[in-house]
Amino acid sequence: MSEKTYIDALAEALREEFDRDENVFMMGEDIGIYGGAFGVTKGMYPKYKDKLLDTPISEASIVGAGVGCALVGMRPIVEIMFSDFMMDAMEWIVNQAAKLRYMTGGQLKVPMVIRAPMGCGTGAAAQHSQSLPALFAHIPGLKVVMPATPYDVKGMLKAAVRDDNPVIFFEHKLLYWTKGDVPEGDYTVPIGKAAVKREGKDITIIAGSIMVPRSMGAAEKLKEYGIDAEVIDIRSLVPMDVETIVESVSKTGKAIIVEDDNKNNGWGSEVVSKLIESDAFDYLDEPIKRLAGKDIPIPYAPELERAAVPQIEDIIEGVKEIFDKR
């Protein structure tokens, strides 16, 4: 076990999967000698030249070719430089990758991972900053994950590569340089399992991706107000680990959901729906609250960009409001 950055843990997972299975390789724009737009494959090129395929700027055919490779038994990892650019490839994600297994009565499978850096906080404005997990979580046939820690990103990338389904793998750009303990060698973190990242008894904060460290920060601060918050990292939107969330909310009786996506029809709505359809409903002693991005394209100016999505202080405030009401 040693402390590593998220980006190093991710790179380690890639190298280990390349070494483990000859069918695993990665294709994408500028991932070779350049090392990827965010440096995920930096320095890998000399040793893994054969595993890193630089493609033309053709997102639709990059993903479509990934589907073709997967259909004939390879396990491609596709890097889309910014998740916003997945819009160019929607046909091959939504109409092809997601549907091929079902449409063919189980004859085909698409073991493909699409890695996509997402999120705001870098000043790149609306077309390079959107967080879209909810959009893909609506599509049957896709799995959608968004690991938040170095430990999870390594284990979940490995699990995604070994999964027989198309997995959309969202990496928030601001997580790349965060640090955490990462074991050496092989381990997987199962897709479809949430994690209790902090135990508490007063309220359940359900967060995903970048909102996990922010919620952890908020939870520490909330101690000063006498509030002991439990933080659940949802990790995987599809499949969603409803059991862990229901169990926690049944214990605390209060829930707040913190999303990096914009709010309208976001994944938090699905969590709310699952909660009120479950036994946890009987234990709720306050309405469920949602904090999410504003329903706007991500703006450029730093003050605007910061205000577009929940920050630590917003989470603290949001939780306090629930308790102040009483």
Binding site: G66, V67, G68, C69, P76
Partner: peptide, 13 residues
């Protein structure tokens, strides 16, 4: 729809 998929199958080969 099949054109990139075929291209991928050929890439795999």
């Amino acid at each position: 729809g099949g054109i990139p998929i075929a291209t991928g199958a050929a890439l795999a080969s």
